[in-house]
């Protein structure tokens, strides 16, 4: 019997949901497991880093990495898995574009550490102890990975071949990706393995979406009981459908919640958040700044709303206030 293709799964800065979606293959998992040889899957099987190191370069046909990259260890593992895989696949929103943890790019590392280890209401840490990369305990030298200054998507650290978006991706998309791999039908390198049309196209409510939307106010989803059959935008509820790639089967819409954008943008859009801002703002019924401001105040957190899963991959990558100081002499600033 010919050797089965080797594949691996790994998690970086992740919540575990992406691993869960692998298990959600349910009976299809058996089909996958039958067709491939899983050589690395720390959450589900007992493999060690040494096992990966022992593999020849390019030994894995594909490795699926989920989670964002924020620590030195995640960078090392990504580099190692890159070396050992013919195809490196960013699996899920965090690996693809930074994901929810990417919103941390609105803060500095210092702000985050201070809050988490000192000032958060549930913290009691009078000595102000913080994690140290190297420390001593009872005569033992201990080390932990270094925390980086920014959250990154996988392709901001190593070269990536394919992207499987979603928070998490659906088992269906994973199955299709594995089948494409087995049949040698993977598309052009750099492709996103999901349909390249907007979610609205797949949405059961699309017939109720007016061709010309007119917003007089925006209503936040927790404040109303949304009509389950009418387009969210027609109800004044922000739905990321128009600027989000399809492929999920409109899961959230079916649960009567608006899309929050986890599949990222289509290939025609560079910055998902700016595109959504553009679409919504254009259709606000205001012909002056004051009215526009009043209506748009109904969207209190544009970064968290429009860039919920894509801030590290956006044009500005996060708050520019947190970047290192410019080395340039500052104009005529006093």
């Amino acid at each position: 019997m010919p050797e089965k293709p080797k594949i691996g799964f790994y998690w970086c800065g992740s919540c575990g949901g992406c691993e869960e979606s692998v298990v959600d293959l349910a009976l299809d998992l058996l089909v996958v497991v039958d067709a491939v040889d899983i050589v690395f899957f720390p959450v589900g099987m007992d493999f060690k880093r040494e096992d990966v190191e022992a593999l020849p370069d390019g030994a894995m046909a594909a490795c699926f990495i989920n989670g964002c990259i924020r620590t030195s260890e995640q960078e090392e593992m990504s580099a190692l898995l890159r070396q050992k895989s013919q195809n490196l696949i960013a699996y899920g929103a965090c690996a693809t574009s930074g994901g929810i943890p990417g919103l941390a790019n609105q803060f500095t590392k210092e702000q985050i550490l201070r809050f988490v280890y000192e000032t958060s209401p549930s913290t009691h840490n009078e000595a102000g102890v913080r994690p140290q990369v190297a420390s001593q305990d009872a005569g033992h030298a201990l080390t932990i990975p270094a925390l980086r200054d920014r959250v990154r998507a996988l392709d901001q650290v190593v070269d990536v071949d394919y992207y499987l978006p979603g928070c998490p991706p659906t088992p269906e998309l994973l199955k299709n990706a594995v089948l494409a791999l087995l049949n040698g039908q993977l598309p052009e390198k750099g492709s996103v393995l999901a349909p390249d049309v907007a979610l609205c196209d797949q949405c059961r409510r699309k017939d109720t979406k007016p061709t010309e939307l007119k917003y007089t106010e925006f209503i936040r989803p927790h404040l109303v009981k949304a009509d389950p059959n009418t387009c969210f935008l027609a109800q004044g509820i922000v739905c990321m459908g128009p600027s989000t790639r399809s492929g999920c089967g409109a899961l959230c819409i079916e649960g009567n919640m608006p899309c929050s954008g986890c599949f990222g943008a289509t290939s025609r859009v560079r910055d998902q958040g700016a595109k959504m801002l553009s679409t919504l703002a254009a259709s606000v019924t205001a012909d002056n700044r004051d009215d526009a401001e009043r209506i748009l105040a109904g969207i209190p957190d544009p970064v968290g709303t429009f860039y919920r899963y894509s801030l590290p991959h956006s044009l500005l990558r996060g708050s520019t206030a947190n970047l290192p100081k410019s080395t340039r002499n500052g104009g005529s600033r006093p």
Partner: peptide, 27 residues
């Protein structure tokens, strides 16, 4: 009056934290 922004080079300065590590791996 507001002064320079230099977003690109400041992002590049931050990214050096990654490059060092990945290059150390010969990748």
């Amino acid at each position: 009056q507001l002064g320079p922004l230099d977003i690109r080079s400041r992002n590049a300065a931050l990214d050096r934290e990654v490059e060092a590590r990945v290059h150390a791996h010969g990748e």
